[in-house]
């Protein structure tokens, strides 16, 4: 069984690295390292030594030029002493049997780098029934940014818990892996979480190809919603996260790492937690947000080198 070697990126305004690393460890990550972007840029650490890249929440460069915009720019143009950009490293990384998870600011970064939804990747992994997950490889060359993550319709930053439902046909390794995730409560904490596609076709393609693994939904109907506050930012069709066609690159606005213990849930003392998800957890203590990380760990144990 391959070892899970997780790199949790930190530095320059990222601020959820500790709880994200904690969630990786609880989920069974074998080696989990918090690595500062400065050490990557200085060549003191390299993505190549890991098989799970986690981009946690925060405010890269203060989100001063737009959410994760300056952060994405640093990825593309910041160079290691060897003259390699982090984006070059990332391109090499995603061609191996590896996983990338972006949460909140990390999701914004992935979208702005064009890593997701990246429909061009469909060409190289159009066979969803292929049993050999290793063969499903993301696109060989960087694709142009196809969507963005923009200001909430309310114009406000908000911290609130949302109810998420899943596309069960999604190739997403994190939501439809060993544990099938559905009806999950997670917190969102952002001012810019509305997903906007460059074209209507883009939106349609992403939905048709099941690249939207999670939706904001109404707890009453269980259906994806565009209605505030169940949908906190006005994302069309309730889009809460996006993956690439391989299902190995996934980003979402809600914070799964913030639900690693049952007491994280705002209503834990009311005895109303989702029992379906609870049975997938190792103990009553664990929070259901861990399931995303467990799916990643299971996949890596099986397929990583």
């Amino acid at each position: 069984m391959a070892k899970v070697r997780a790199l949790v990126l930190a530095g320059n305004g990222t601020n959820c690295e500790r709880e994200t690393a904690h969630a990786c460890r609880l989920a069974g990550g074998d080696e989990v390292h918090i690595v500062f972007i400065w050490d990557l840029l200085a060549g003191k650490a390299s993505l190549g030594d890991y098989n799970f890249l986690v981009l946690p929440g925060g405010f890269m460069d203060g989100d001063d030029l737009g959410a994760a915009k300056a952060g994405a720019h640093r990825f593309k143009h910041g160079k290691t002493p060897a003259g390699e950009s982090l984006f070059d490293q990332l391109q090499t990384f995603i061609h191996g049997p590896k996983l990338v998870l972006g949460i909140c600011n990390g999701f914004q970064l992935m979208v702005k780098l064009g890593l997701i939804p990246n429909p061009a990747a469909l060409l190289s992994c159009d066979d969803h029934d292929n049993d050999d997950q290793k063969e499903k490889t993301p696109a060989k060359s960087p694709s142009p940014q196809e969507a963005t993550v923009w200001a909430n319709d309310s114009g406000r930053f908000e911290d609130r818990w949302v109810y998420l439902t899943a596309d069960k046909s999604s190739p997403c390794v994190f939501t439809q892996g060993t544990h099938k995730i559905d009806k999950l409560d997670l917190p969102i904490r952002h001012g810019e979480g509305k997903v906007i596609f460059g074209s209507l076709d883009g939106l349609k393609n992403a939905l048709d190809n099941h690249l939207v693994p999670l939706f904001y939904a109404s707890p009453d109907t269980g259906r994806p919603t565009e209605k505030y506050p169940e949908n906190p930012n006005g994302s069309p069709r309730g889009i809460a996260g996006i993956c690439d066609p391989s299902g190995r690159l996934f980003g979402l606005m809600p914070h799964p790492e913030a639900y690693s213990h049952f007491t994280n849930h705002p209503r834990w003392s009311r005895d109303t937690l989702n029992k379906d998800l609870a049975k997938d957890l190792a103990s009553e203590e664990e929070g259901a947000g861990l399931l995303l990380f467990k799916n990643a760990v299971d996949w890596l144990h099986r397929y990583a080198d």
């Binding site: 959820c16 709880e19 904690h22 969630a23 930053f157 913030a258 690693s260 705002p266 009311r270």
Partner: peptide, 21 residues
């Protein structure tokens, strides 16, 4: 709501509570 009150992952009792938070 406009203040992040649960970053760092250790939140147990939040500023708002109850059936509808």
């Amino acid at each position: 709501r406009q203040y992040d009150h649960e970053v760092q992952g250790g939140s147990v009792v939040k500023p708002l509570t109850g059936a509808h938070d």
